[in-house]
Design a protein around this nucleic acid. Structure first.
Lengths: 180, 180
DNA sequence: CAGTATCCTGTCCGATACTG
DNA sequence: CAGTATCGGACAGGATACTG
């Protein structure tokens, strides 16, 4: 992608989407987590055109989410394996999955998370690692961090917030930056 | 999107991406969480072309993630507010943010999650709501659920897995479906 | 099997102009 | 202010053929 636009270049969501925002990318990562490593496996499982697969695979390698390494010389063949950064994407995938299961699976769950040992269904929940509390809004919110530039600071509240008490979730305040 | 392809139609990740997979969509949702409700706010904050914004907004409304409701008649004006399904997307956004912060913010954090009351930085972690255990692989895995069709069952293990002990994370087994 | 090369179509998207 | 209408370009993406 090549957006010169007003999009905040510091936004970590924006930076993530630059890597995985393309249509096929997350599907490819999902296949990688499912065990696919070879060109042919990705292609068959996704039904993606080979030129597209090449493009996306190379982009993922360039972005450091996949590592391309030879598993055979003569002829030279590569496999694509998740890097540490790529493996760290798993929680994102699982959170998306939970969201889809909750809202877009009216006929029941086709795919679900379970405890590998017991088979007990698991239900993903986000917590704060330090306090152990559920990571919910408005108990937690996004604010400008230490590396924020002027533009970011103008769009995100700097803690402590000037308006301490969070507004109600449904109260649509016209000015932004107080609801996240 | 209109992919007739082999993509598993039951996959909850696929179903989610059908709703939020387009380039602008997640950016728009982020702005909505930041407090934007009006056409003009989205446009200014994102630098998106108006026709595109209209398209994406309508798609989000059609998919039930935003609700379009009049805030003025004469002239008729609408605001776009997150529905329950839309609000449930917040954990996804925060998980993506955490991933971006960890891997793509070498200069330090520009935007971060904090405790609204104390300002203490929060660190998102995924756990299983029922057991309270960290939701990590291979302790947890994705398997075919009760509503899985034949195709899904063939691609995802049905618990209990035929190969009970999970393979090591780095051991790239050629056949898929045992690593997620 | 693991891609590369070509060609083609659709549409995403931006720019601009226009309207109540 | 909140969009709609139209135009054009870039490119994502599919289909196919080809290669070691």
């Amino acid at each position: 992608m090549h957006h010169n636009s007003p999009l905040n270049p510091q936004c970590p969501i924006g930076r993530s989407l630059e890597r995985v925002g393309e249509w096929w990318t997350i599907h490819i990562l999902r296949e990688a987590f499912l065990g696919a490593t070879r060109f042919d496996q990705f292609q068959k499982n996704l039904g993606i055109a080979p030129n597209m697969l090449t493009r996306r695979l190379n982009a993922l390698v360039a972005d450091g989410l996949l590592e391309k390494r030879p598993y055979s010389t003569r002829p030279l063949r590569h496999e694509y394996v998740l890097t540490a950064a790529g493996l760290d994407f798993r929680p994102v995938l699982w959170t998306i999955m939970a969201w889809g299961n909750k809202h877009f699976s009216p006929e029941g769950l086709a795919i679900q998370l379970v405890d590998s040992a017991t088979g007990t269904p698991a239900e993903p929940q986000l917590i704060d690692r330090h306090s152990g509390r559920p990571l919910t809004w408005p108990a937690f919110r996004t604010v400008a961090g230490p590396a924020a530039d002027a533009r970011t600071k103008s769009r995100y509240p700097v803690w402590p917030a000037t308006t301490p008490q969070p507004t109600s979730p449904t109260a649509g305040s016209a000015d932004a930056a107080d609801a996240a």
